[in-house]
């Protein structure tokens, strides 16, 4: 896709469904909306089949509203809850096999650089804790070792929610789940430190309670990946079904976890830090060539 594609052919404006006409007229393509304007523009994803009260659904909504260039973005997902919503968005989506998202993203990013040498195409992997830190661990780590220039976002619900509630490497120690009644015997994997050690240039851990901060983190991760190397966001997106969190307590739970093990943490390499100081002090917010 590209911005030049987001136009309806002459005469067919009257035959397109309203959703698509609105996407072209009032959508995010080619515009830079602030996350606080959510609700005043046509969003890239609206309806989805996620469970009521799913915090991941909320995260993905904010994720799409924060994309710096949705017309030049490709999202990659894998088996798990997130892909149910990711595949319904008006942004190209690729379904990787379980665990190979980062390998697919590596190839895709390289191919896009060859195919569109004069354009920047953003590749973003959005996958769960199982897809990235358990089954896809090897491919995730190796994409970081190779310093592939794309963003990896782990939507961590701390369980295999789709398949009945097995423990994952990211489940907290001692937690009892439906398919893990004895309780987990070892600690949660420290994904953020692993990402730093493996060569990510921008790493963040976030409990998405503050949409403005979340949007800024996502934008920074995507922009840093364009110029410097792999970036990683570890986001807490609770599973209210498997962890039995009442729908109205989901946000409260996220705030509680934010006070404990999901305090906002952001780390970036010196190059990236200098770069953001440069562009964020620039009043017009123009990106600078590196």
């Amino acid at each position: 896709m590209g911005l030049e594609y987001v136009r309806i052919t002459t005469g067919f404006e009257d035959y397109m469904p309203k959703d698509y006409v609105d996407l072209v007229k009032y959508g995010q393509f080619g515009k830079d909306y602030d996350i606080q304007e959510l609700g005043t523009f046509k969003e890239l994803v609206e309806e989805h089949p996620m469970c009521a009260g799913c915090f991941m659904a909320y995260f993905i909504r904010v994720f799409y509203a924060s994309l710096p260039k949705p017309e030049d973005t490709i999202v990659i997902g894998t088996a798990g809850c997130a892909r149910l919503q990711l595949s319904q968005a008006a942004v190209p989506f690729i379904y990787g096999n379980y665990g190979d998202t980062n390998a697919v993203a590596s190839g895709l990013k390289r191919a896009l650089e060859i195919r569109f040498p004069d354009k920047v195409k953003d590749v973003v992997v959005v996958a769960g804790d199982g897809g990235l830190m358990d089954i896809g661990f090897g491919m995730t780590m190796h994409s970081w070792f190779r310093r592939e220039r794309f963003t990896t976002i782990m939507v961590d619900n701390e369980v295999y929610g789709n398949t009945g509630g097995q423990e994952s490497g990211m489940s907290p120690k001692g937690v009892q789940l439906k398919m893990a009644p004895k309780g987990k015997k070892f600690d949660k994997i420290n994904a953020v430190e692993l990402a730093k050690a493996a060569g990510c240039v921008y790493v963040a851990r976030i409990s998405p309670t503050n949409p403005k901060r979340l949007a800024k983190t996502i934008k920074r991760a995507i922009i840093a990946a364009r110029h410097f190397g792999p970036t990683f966001i570890h986001a807490y997106t609770s599973c209210n079904i498997e962890y039995s969190i009442p729908t109205e307590k989901v946000l409260e739970d996220a705030r509680n976890r934010e006070k404990k093990d999901f305090t906002f943490y952001e780390w970036m390499s010196d190059d990236v830090k200098n770069y953001f100081e440069q562009i964020e002090s620039n009043k017009e917010g123009q990106e600078v060539k590196v």
């Binding site: 136009r7 309806i8 052919t9 005469g11 035959y15």
Partner: peptide
Amino acid sequence: FPGPKILWGWSPTAFEEADAIL
């Protein structure tokens, strides 16, 4: 049933084909 190759103005030929379909 026109598909994306007719509905979206991704190339000059798309506009020409869209005209012909109408």
